Amino acid sequence: MSRPRPLPQDPIAEAHRQWTAHGWGEVADGMAAVTSLVRAQQIVMARVDEALKPSGLTFSRYELLQLLSFSRTGAVPMAKASERLQVHPTSVTNTVDRLEAAGLVLRVPHPSDRRAILIEITEAGRALVAAATEALNSNVFALPGLAPDRLQALLELLAEFRRAAGDFDAGEDPAHWAPARDRVRSPD
């Protein structure tokens, strides 16, 4: 994967300096944190997009296919997909439309709830998401850009940030961020 040429200076550090110099020092750290998160997201998504390019998938389509591949039956209700992916139901509908047109998922009636529709992954969807996962694992996830101990610290900080923002139940045990190599896989 090609990386862009680094800038001669950190523009966020310069913005922090300017924020402070213009009398906003009390919020300069917050501005730098938010701006750094946004920039980090841009960097990560560029790497993800490059890894997914051969599959023709966007990250949202990849996430939905992976969610389906992780389910016991290969199918989940549309509403549950929306909840699990933390996106509006309309986004799931649009993603399913595109995946269905490509032959990667099917809409099927829910066996016990006539009002619900299941999204079911096809064999073509399974094959594509497996190949895309290999590309992401080797080109993005295996090389996140931080040493394991720093990555662990980042995961804990981001979980703390998301919990404080109300992203998930504040009672959740933070121990779930124990390094993956130290955990035993639990069956679903």
Results as ranks from 00 to 15, higher is better:
residue 142 A to M: 10
residue 123 E to F: 10
residue 137 N to F: 05
residue 142 A to G: 09
residue 131 A to Y: 02
residue 144 P to Y: 08
residue 139 N to M: 02
residue 110 H to F: 13
residue 95 T to C: 04
residue 125 G to H: 09
residue 98 R to L: 11
residue 111 P to G: 07
residue 116 A to E: 11
residue 132 A to E: 03
residue 135 A to K: 00
residue 145 G to D: 05
residue 131 A to C: 02
residue 109 P to N: 10
residue 100 E to V: 06
residue 127 A to L: 03
residue 106 L to T: 07
residue 110 H to M: 14
residue 100 E to L: 05
residue 133 T to P: 01
residue 139 N to F: 01
residue 141 F to E: 00
residue 118 L to V: 10
residue 123 E to M: 14
residue 117 I to M: 15
residue 133 T to F: 02
residue 105 V to D: 06
residue 128 L to C: 02
residue 126 R to H: 10
residue 117 I to L: 13
residue 103 G to M: 05
residue 122 T to L: 12
residue 108 V to E: 07
residue 121 I to R: 04
residue 115 R to W: 12
residue 129 V to E: 12
residue 109 P to W: 15
residue 135 A to T: 00
residue 122 T to H: 14
residue 95 T to E: 03
residue 97 D to F: 15
residue 122 T to K: 09
residue 97 D to G: 14
residue 145 G to M: 04
residue 121 I to G: 07
residue 96 V to A: 12
residue 119 I to H: 05
residue 98 R to H: 13
residue 134 E to Q: 01
residue 127 A to V: 03
residue 126 R to V: 09
residue 139 N to L: 01
residue 135 A to D: 01
residue 106 L to A: 07
residue 102 A to K: 04
residue 109 P to M: 10
residue 119 I to F: 06
residue 115 R to I: 15
residue 147 A to W: 11
residue 122 T to V: 13
residue 99 L to C: 08
residue 147 A to F: 06
residue 131 A to H: 02
residue 100 E to K: 08
residue 107 R to N: 09
residue 146 L to V: 07
residue 121 I to W: 07
residue 105 V to K: 04
residue 146 L to S: 09
residue 138 S to L: 00
residue 103 G to W: 11
residue 116 A to N: 12
residue 106 L to N: 09
residue 133 T to L: 01
residue 101 A to H: 12
residue 133 T to Y: 05
residue 115 R to Y: 14
residue 120 E to C: 05
residue 129 V to W: 09
residue 106 L to I: 06
residue 125 G to W: 14
residue 126 R to A: 12
residue 126 R to Q: 09
residue 134 E to M: 00
residue 147 A to R: 07
residue 105 V to C: 08
residue 93 T to Y: 13
residue 135 A to Y: 01
residue 131 A to V: 00
residue 99 L to V: 14
residue 143 L to E: 02
residue 98 R to N: 14
residue 105 V to I: 07
residue 93 T to N: 10
residue 101 A to G: 13
residue 143 L to V: 04
residue 103 G to Q: 10
residue 147 A to P: 11
residue 96 V to M: 05
residue 142 A to D: 14
residue 137 N to Y: 04
residue 117 I to C: 12
residue 146 L to Y: 15
residue 93 T to R: 10
residue 120 E to Q: 13
residue 103 G to H: 11
residue 126 R to W: 14
residue 147 A to D: 08
residue 100 E to I: 06
residue 147 A to K: 07
residue 145 G to T: 04
residue 141 F to K: 00
residue 118 L to H: 13
residue 98 R to K: 15
residue 124 A to F: 14
residue 109 P to E: 14
residue 109 P to S: 11
residue 121 I to Y: 08
residue 131 A to G: 03
residue 117 I to Y: 15
residue 99 L to S: 10
residue 119 I to P: 05
residue 130 A to T: 04
residue 135 A to S: 03
residue 116 A to Q: 13
residue 96 V to C: 06
residue 130 A to L: 03
residue 137 N to A: 06
residue 94 N to R: 07
residue 100 E to D: 08
residue 106 L to V: 07
residue 114 R to M: 13
residue 113 D to V: 14
residue 140 V to W: 01
residue 95 T to F: 02
residue 104 L to E: 02
residue 125 G to K: 12
residue 111 P to S: 10
residue 130 A to D: 05
residue 133 T to W: 01
residue 121 I to H: 06
